[in-house]
Nucleic acid binder design. Structure first.
Length: 815
DNA sequence: ACTATCCGCATTTTT
DNA sequence: TGCGGATAGT
């Protein structure tokens, strides 16, 4: 099967001065060239972590220690996953598609689609994002007359998500009090609802695929054998379930020790663990070392980002934390400028000082605006700063707004699209049924829900049971969807979306709305998104789900593998296949996910870009959390006050202060050249002026690296309370979350576009009658893609409409 | 069904 | 202070 001998014994064949390894420092080199076995890499801020990770993969491939199919690299964000793929393909002429590089949720999705039957899901299951989940919870609350005072939907949602993150099904939750019992009951009901509707939430994606691996020995064996090299990014941010999931893939646990097949490399930084509040467990690092019997720990402490005054400050600060694995950043750069500290009288004066400093930086020191960031602990702090920037006509951009796929108008359009795919998706039904308004009010909905409940069916199916005018309106809506479904048969994604926008009346509705122009523009952008999703290079590629025997061995090879780069050794089993729409191909039947389902999945899993767009010439405003992983020439951290930073709410639970300190550590280490800290004696908070003393973190910084700036004696002019703040929400930089979705500039070279093969003479076109071994006779509705990508949408009278990969499906033309 | 108004609430957030 | 959600009024 795979070359075991290569993995266990043989020395790497690449010479140490291979160009791949050039310019790596000693610790980086050690990490990159680790021989087989588990390892923990403590990667300090700015230590070249991503570089090490990607070079490691490249080195494994180049030295023949691994094949693309044997690698699993998992990250938290799509951005990180994309960056890894991009850098990798810039390094090696490697087929990135063969590798499983993605987010936890993205990879879980892939597993579940490929093995949907074993996982007990429809292949086209839809994914609920946090908004969808909340509306599903609310709907369920209403249906079961839950006292929403005692059990706020938000809290129930939080409870459910929390349980899943801990790997707990309703039956696993320890019930200590009546309230918890009620919540667990609700959790149970929620699960049943999701299952009935064929939808999964983010937590479910993780939990379900964990259970899949846990409960299906042959699948587990298969993937364990396949993934000889597992690499985990930001390991300090993993929650309990994610770690458990990784363990399933890595090997079997015997008496608390992992009997692993390949090797697991966990990369993380305990000092940058700032997500405990959402279930991240730094303790996973220690558990990993113990359970995997990790022999190698490498610290990446050489920092390539900041001058030493900044670094010294970070080191000194974080040394006040007790529970640390221990790490100290160093640099070969000089001290640089001192860290400037400013004490303002009011929050407004603080903001004005920041703005003034920024103007100086740009004017006198040649700093680029997009290389300057203003960081704060909580979003509310941005307001004053925005005002000041706006008044000074300094372009800026705020992060943290709604992302593309989260916008209301987009969610509405997606709801229609989802209903086309699955009429029983009640969440989407509820969203679409009366938007745009079509005379279906709360009363009608209530009747419908009652009907659905009493007959145990979906809202869509219950429509016929509603009498009178309400029933007629509802019937018209369902009919409209059905007609639309008919009409879009055989249409491509772009045409489907256009049809939905038209038939739903969404465009029409927004045309009549005074603020609707932006929304229409976004809806147009959705059409483009659909278009590029199918056409463009660079979207998620997925795997062929091969039939496996009871030992997890593949029963058959994928014929598609023959079309791939022959120079790369290919593992048996699950092989990559070109599926621009990111589909999964069932090798038995050739069935692929419809482009629409793939697109909807993409929309749920990747809400759109929120991150920096290069060359925007705008000062960057964001929370400290949002700044993690980024770097800037100059960084301002405002609101350095007791109660704000460290935040008062964080001081309750144990470890709260330490997490705040790590947060501050993250903030400091974002800066390359200049760091400015400021605090204000007075601050408008919740409508009241509050007095704050300066943050204790100042006392933890080295006096020698700081330079205190006292405010100049100012006249009243500077202290003027803001009168009539009648500026629009759109700031100079375009306001929050401006169009990040399509056509962004890539920081790294995009993967080489493989030459398009000429379409093989499959001789199919719309209308052709074909025969399939399993599905019988059918009629071709549409063809998409070329070469190995080509797939046909075929309507089988008995099995419905399916997308089939022509490279795999055995279709014969019937005359 | 849509708008006006009032009340309560206010770290951090990716998938 | 300023927002979102829920309610009451047309």
């Amino acid at each position: 099967m795979f070359p075991l001998d290569l993995l266990s014994g043989a020395e790497p064949s690449a010479s140490p001065d291979s160009p791949l390894l050039a310019h790596l420092n000693e610790e980086q080199l050690a990490a990159v060239t680790l021989s087989a076995g588990h390892a923990l890499i403590l990667a300090g801020a700015g230590s070249g972590k991503t570089r090490v990770l990607t070079t490691r993969i490249a080195w494994l491939l180049q030295t023949g220690q691994a094949t693309p199919a044997g690698i699993l690299a998992v990250t938290f964000t799509n951005k990180a996953a994309k960056e890894m793929s991009a850098r990798l393909s810039a390094m090696l002429p490697v087929n990135v598609r063969g590798m499983w590089i993605g987010t936890f949720h993205g990879l879980c999705n892939r597993l579940l689609r490929a093995h949907h039957q074993a996982a007990g899901l429809p292949q086209s299951f839809q994914i609920l994002d946090t908004q969808d989940q909340l509306s599903a919870v609310k709907r369920l609350c209403k249906q079961h007359n839950v006292d929403e005072e005692r059990f706020p939907p938000k809290q129930l949602q939080y409870f459910i998500a929390g349980c899943k993150e801990e790997g707990q099904r309703p039956g696993d939750v320890a019930v200590s009090d009546p309230d918890t019992r009620r919540k667990v009951e609700f959790y149970q009901l929620y699960e049943e609802q999701c299952q009935r509707e064929g939808v999964v939430d983010f937590g479910e994606l993780m939990l379900r695929s964990y259970e899949l691996l846990r409960d299906q020995p042959h699948l587990r064996a298969h993937y364990q054998r396949r993934f000889q090299h597992i690499l985990v990014d930001e390991f300090q941010d993993t929650n309990r379930l994610q770690y458990a999931w990784l363990k399933q893939l890595a090997g079997d646990e015997v008496e608390g020790r992992m009997q692993a097949h390949g090797s697991v490399i966990a990369v993380g930084d305990d000092d940058q663990s700032i997500y405990a509040f959402r279930g991240a467990r730094v303790g996973n690092m220690a558990d990993f070392v113990r359970e995997f019997d990790v022999q190698r720990q490498i610290k990446l402490e050489q920092n390539y980002r900041s001058f030493s005054n900044i670094l010294d400050s970070a080191n000194a600060l974080i040394s006040h934390n007790s529970r640390r694995l221990g790490k100290n950043l160093r640099t070969t750069q000089g001290p640089g400028e001192p860290v400037r500290v400013y004490e303002a009288h009011t929050d407004l004066a603080e903001a004005q000082w920041i703005v003034e400093e920024i103007r100086q930086l740009v004017k006198n020191d040649g700093f680029e605006r997009q290389e300057i960031a203003i960081l704060y602990r909580s979003n509310a702090q941005s307001r004053v700063i925005e005002t000041a920037l706006f008044n000074a006509a300094v372009p800026y951009r705020v992060y943290g707004g709604l992302r593309f796929f989260e916008r209301a108008e987009i969610k509405h359009a997606l709801a229609y699209l989802r209903l086309l795919e699955n009429p029983h998706d009640d969440t989407s039904f509820m969203r679409a049924v009366n938007f745009p308004p079509r005379g279906i009010g709360a009363r009608s909905i209530e009747l419908l829900q009652d009907a659905a409940r009493s007959s145990g069916c979906s809202l869509s199916d219950a429509v016929t049971a509603v009498p009178g005018k309400a029933g007629a309106n509802l019937g018209a809506f369902v009919a409209k969807i059905e007609v639309l479904r008919e009409q879009t048969q055989g249409k491509n994604l772009r045409q489907i979306i256009e049809a939905v926008l038209d038939a739903s009346g969404l465009i029409e509705h927004y045309r009549n709305e005074k603020e609707g122009a932006d929304r229409i523009e976004n809806l147009q952008e959705l059409v483009n998104a659909g278009e590029s999703f199918v056409t463009q290079e660079g979207f998620g590629r997925d795997a062929v789900a091969l039939p496996l025997d009871e030992h997890g061995q593949a029963l058959r090879q994928s014929p598609v593998s023959q079309g791939l780069d022959p120079s790369l050794p290919v593992l048996d089993e699950v092989l990559p296949v070109l599926q621009p729409q990111g589909g999964i191909v069932d090798i038995d039947t050739g069935e692929t996910l419809s482009p629409l389902v793939a697109f909807l999945t993409h929309a749920a899993l990747e809400a759109g870009d929120n991150q920096a767009q290069a060359g925007q010439d705008a000062v960057q405003l964001m929370t400290v959390h949002a700044s993690k992983g980024l770097e800037f020439d100059a960084v301002f951290i405002g609101g350095m006050e007791e109660g704000l930073f460290p935040h008062e709410n964080a001081m309750n639970d144990s470890g709260g202060l330490e997490e705040e300190r790590r947060l501050m550590y993250v903030a400091i280490t974002r800066a390359r050249k200049r760091l400015y800290l400021s605090h204000s004696q007075t601050r408008m908070l919740h409508g009241q002026t509050r007095f704050h003393i300066k943050s204790r973190f100042f006392d933890e910084l080295p006096e020698s690296a700081l330079k205190w700036i006292t405010p100049k004696q100012q006249g009243f002019g500077t202290f003027m309370p803001q009168g009539g703040g009648g500026y629009g929400s759109a700031g100079y930089g375009g306001g929050r979350g401006q169009g990040g979705w399509g056509g962004k500039t890539e920081t790294f070279a995009s993967p080489p576009v493989p030459p398009q093969k000429a379409a093989p003479g499959h001789g199919l076109s719309a209308g052709t009658a074909v025969f399939h071994n399993k599905f019988g006779e059918g009629k071709v509705l549409a063809i998409e893609g070329t070469g190995d990508d080509a797939r046909a949408q075929v309507n089988f009278p008995r099995h419905g409409t399916k997308w089939l990969a022509l490279a795999i499906a055995k279709l014969t033309i019937v005359d």
